[in-house]
Write a protein that binds this DNA or RNA. Structure first.
Length: 496
RNA sequence: GCCCCCAUCGUCUAGUGGCCCAGGACGAAGCCCUCUCAAGGCUUAAACCGGGAUUCGAAUUCCCGUGGGGGCACCA
């Protein structure tokens, strides 16, 4: 037997806790997760909180909750631990200092005493002269003795990477191939800040190495500093991971990168790019994931997938590098499609919170009965209110106008309701099988059309013009309530 | 300003030199079904950014434009 062996991949999702978990982050996490699971490896979560001033309280928890809601369970992370912890960068200071020392000793990095004010002035001057903004190298020229003396003096300083000033760097991205950049385009970037914490450039490289990450899956906004990162990894003499820079998401219009502002706009139409909001809006993890997965991934076949199926079909070779405009209509489609795939019990459980949050008293047996009736009518879970809230209400108060059938007047409509009432009253129970035949017969003999007769009954019993199928609905509402509601409708019609 | 990346229907994508007068999905239009609304079935319209080059042959390779995106911090 022939065994195709794939090395298990270790991947990570490494967000900074500076805001809401959004669609772009979720998709990055998804691909990293899929790659790990596909190859039998591990997926881990690391919090990149080295910019203390930007850290938002609660953001970290939102990341945990969001990933769990989506079903992207990580094997290692800040809240569950793991063999390579800690998984929060602010708790890893000593590790970074150890590696900074290595770089300084090997001549790949140097201390810099320039003040932010001076740097600002230099940058402004360079812009005025239309030169590329870059560090001017003042401290790079300092002798080791001089630097040591100033450090001993307690002078505040950062540590910069000593970038080669000539030649080129060739960095290999899995989706784009070799990317070549002249070294002089690269800056002597700050690796360690005055506050003793590392910048992303150092922290991410160190952690990915320490944590055994085999594939770095991240957004294409990192493409610009990608060659720098490759240089840092090489300065340490480490083996490079496989780099996978994902495409970015564009606004629905295709003009510009998706931003927070777009979520505000989207919210007006019942959408959001924040994972937390999507749940409130009635989207399902399955729908959101399926939608996000398809933007940037050319699935071989079968567009509709749950997480498990995505794992089966996933391959980083079929990821696409070009930017993708998001399309909320497609979200609707995938959400509705997955809703239709849920079992009745599952869907009932998912729907219940949407009824109860509106203050409705949900009877579980009734809920189970209405699910098959409304399932294919739902786009979002909260649509269940529009189609099924009346099942849990004591009274319905139809708009009198709506009770009048098309082409008829109030009096005629009242007569029809009266006749329908008699027919239904003759039935010992109200069921689909018992009620439809006699009412159809009435439609026949009266010369009316089904729309007219059924329409009056629909509005009378459900209180709305659009509802799940009439007879099935009446059956669930029950004989007593149906008759009472029709009687009420007759009264309303007679008063017109 | 400089650098990097990307480029197939409106949108997401398939396509790795002949299988492509370009396939799928969403959306759109029409028809069927039908007690409303959906769902479902069938059908239609809709694209290789432009120009050169290589080749018997190019959506597919190369070059130049153009358009779009991203980056140029003691932010990630």
């Amino acid at each position: 037997m022939f065994i195709l062996s794939v090395k298990p991949a270790r991947t990570r999702f490494a967000p900074s806790p500076t805001g809401h978990l959004h669609l772009g982050g979720a998709r990055t996490a998804l691909y990293a997760y899929l790659l790990a699971k596909k190859t039998g490896g591990q997926f881990l979560l690391r919090i990149e909180d080295t910019d203390v001033s930007r850290t938002v309280p609660g953001a970290e928890q939102e990341i945990f909750d969001g990933l769990r809601w989506l079903g992207l369970n990580y094997d290692e992370g800040p809240d569950i631990g793991g063999p390579y912890g800690p998984y929060r960068q602010t708790e890893r200071r000593e590790i970074y200092h150890k590696y900074i020392d290595i770089l300084v000793k090997s001549g790949h990095a140097y201390p810099c005493f320039c003040t932010p004010e001076r740097l600002d002035a230099v940058r402004q001057e360079q812009q005025k002269l239309k030169v590329n903004p870059h560090y001017d190298g003042t401290c790079r020229a300092l002798s080791q003795d001089e630097a040591a003396r100033r450090i001993a003096n307690g002078e505040k300083h950062v540590v910069r990477f000593k970038m080669a000033q000539e030649g080129v760097t060739v960095a290999h991205d899995h989706l784009r191939g070799d990317i070549t950049l002249e070294n002089k385009q690269l800056n002597d970037q700050v690796l360690l800040k005055t506050d003793g914490l590392p910048t992303y450039h150092l922290a991410a490289m160190v952690d990915d190495h320490e944590m055994g990450i085999t594939h770095v899956v991240r957004g294409s906004e990192w493409l610009g500093t990608f060659p720098l990162h490759v240089n840092i990894v090489r300065a340490f003499g480490w083996e490079e991971p496989t780099w996978v820079h994902l495409s970015v998401f564009l606004k629905p219009s295709g003009k510009g990168k998706l931003s927070k502002r777009d979520s505000v706009d989207a919210n007006k139409d019942g959408y959001s790019v924040f994972i937390k909001d999507m749940q409130d809006l009635g989207f399902t993890p399955e729908g959101v994931l399926n939608w996000g997965a398809l933007m940037g991934w050319g699935v071989p076949e079968g567009d509709v997938m749950n997480l498990e199926q995505m794992v089966e079909r996933f391959s980083i070779d079929s990821l696409t590098p070009s930017p993708a405009a998001i399309n909320f209509q497609k979200l609707d489609h995938f959400n509705a499609t997955h809703i239709r795939l849920f079992t009745t019990e599952d869907l009932a459980a998912r729907l219940k919170p949407y009824f109860t949050r509106e203050g409705l008293n949900v009877n579980d047996d009734t809920l189970l009965k209405i699910v098959p009736l409304i399932r294919e009518r739902l786009v979002t879970l909260d649509d269940c209110l529009a189609f099924g809230a009346f099942f849990f209400k004591e009274d319905v108060n139809p708009n009198p106008e709506d009770l009048i059938a098309k082409g008829l007047d109030a009096k005629q409509s009242a007569q029809i309701a009266q006749r329908a009432y008699q027919i239904l009253e003759e039935q010992p129970t109200i069921s689909h099988e018992r009620c439809e035949p006699p009412l159809r017969a009435y439609v026949e003999e009266s010369g009316l059309n089904a729309n007219q007769v059924f329409g009056i009954l629909r509005v009378a019993t459900t209180g709305q013009k659009v509802s799940p199928p009439l007879f099935e609905s009446m059956e669930i509402i029950g004989r007593e309530k149906c008759l009472a509601r029709i009687k009420n409708a007759i009264e309303v019609l007679e008063k017109i």
